[in-house]
Computed example of a mutant assay.
Amino acid sequence: MEVEECVKEWEDLVADYKRLETINKEYTTKLEEVGELQAACLKELEHQKYRMSIINAALKRLEKKGGVKDERVTNLEKEIMKRKAMLHEIKATLPKQNSLYLRIILGNVNVSILNKNDKFKYKDEYEKFKLILSAIAFILAVGNLYIDFRPLQLILIFLLVWYYCTLTIRESILKVNGSRIKGWWRLHHFISTVVAGILLIWPQNQPWEEFRHTFMWFIAYISVVQYMQFRYQSGVLYRLKALGARHNMDITIEGFHSWMWRGLSYLLPFLFGGYVFQLYIAYTLYHLSYHPEATWQVAALSMSFLLIGIGNTVTTMIVVPQKLSEKEQKWRQNKVEQKAE
């Protein structure tokens, strides 16, 4: 390329840069406008909530006074319910404040994902992250069953620490962005993080050597069950989301959930097998805690596995009878309707 051509190319590039500057200026202006609009929306949202609370309080006072509910009051209550739902939808499009956990970990960084496609992309990445890490954990666990090499054991345990720490952060971000993971299954991951941390600092002594194979079998089993859960739950969620029966930001999580009843429940035996395994580990560690070389980690892990095992079992056993009862009620209702016809 000649010098003249280089100069001409540069002049063209200068013109392109000016266009870039114009676009960037417009972009930054729009960003500022978006920030102002978000603040205005939040202000109006709070105003709506405040005014609605006043109206609700007034209606309750009227009801206490013994006022008869006329058609206007009934219609007003219906309108308030509709407005609450509409405000909830509007709120979902606005940035949300981080949870305490996220504020401690990340500070006041805004983790709200406002673009729907980006939300779904982040959720899908979360699902893939769990699947990939489960596969890696399975390979490492199997390797540790046949190779007695301390660094390899520590790699697996450190992976578990990192996995559960990352999982709790990602789930907190998903929750900020509309995912409805809650209750025990979220707490379960926090406890698992602590368990993995204790395992990491457990010294290599005789109790560890006696427990090592049991733990590796457990990790291998849980990894397989998690893969089965992912394959099954993701399929069920896809169908239910397509039917509008589930939220788009719902995720695959451990355990058996009410929405899973709309399909095969073949996972239950494997899940309960995992819970029994957790209780067995708690029992094994309890006995190992009396070993002369046992350190405090053994007793702490025994209690942790007992808590996880009981929590998982109780939570699942609460869900299953509820769904069986609902299913029976629906069956009876259908039978009554058929007789009436």
Rank of each mutant, 00 (worst) to 15 (best):
M1P: 12
E2P: 01
K8E: 13
E9F: 01
D16F: 06
R19L: 09
R19F: 04
L20P: 05
T28G: 00
V34I: 14
A39I: 10
K43G: 05
E44F: 02
E44V: 00
H47L: 10
A57T: 15
A57N: 13
A57I: 08
A58M: 09
L59M: 10
K60L: 04
R61T: 14
L62M: 07
K64C: 05
K64A: 08
K64D: 08
K64W: 06
K65F: 12
V73C: 03
M81Y: 05
M81C: 10
M81F: 08
K84G: 00
M86V: 06
M86D: 10
N98W: 11
N98L: 09
S99V: 02
S99I: 03
L100C: 10
L100Y: 09
R103M: 15
I104P: 00
G107A: 11
S112M: 03
N115F: 00
F120E: 14
Y122P: 00
E127N: 00
F129M: 14
K130Q: 12
L133Q: 02
S134Y: 11
S134R: 00
A137R: 02
I139T: 10
A141C: 08
L145M: 14
D148P: 05
F149L: 11
F149Y: 15
F149V: 06
P151W: 09
L152T: 10
L152S: 15
L154H: 02
L154R: 09
L159M: 04
L160F: 08
W162C: 08
Y163C: 12
Y163Q: 09
Y163H: 15
Y164K: 03
Y164C: 01
C165D: 07
T166R: 15
T168K: 09
I169C: 08
S172V: 06
I173K: 15
V176W: 04
R180C: 03
I181C: 07
G183D: 08
R186V: 02
R186A: 01
R186H: 02
S192E: 10
V195K: 04
V195H: 02
I198Q: 08
L199C: 14
L199K: 01
L200Q: 01
L200E: 04
I201H: 04
Q206T: 15
P207M: 04
W208S: 05
W208V: 10
E209M: 15
W217M: 14
W217E: 05
Y221S: 04
V224L: 06
Q226T: 00
Y232T: 02
Q233D: 03
G235S: 15
A245E: 09
H247K: 12
S258N: 01
W261E: 09
R262S: 14
G263C: 07
S265N: 14
L268W: 06
F277Y: 07
Q278P: 00
Q278H: 07
L279Q: 02
Y280N: 12
Y283W: 13
H287T: 09
Y290I: 00
T295M: 01
A300R: 13
S302W: 08
M303Y: 07
L306N: 12
L306I: 07
L307V: 12
I308D: 12
T315S: 14
Q322A: 13
K327H: 13
Q329C: 02
K330Y: 09
R332M: 09
V336Q: 06
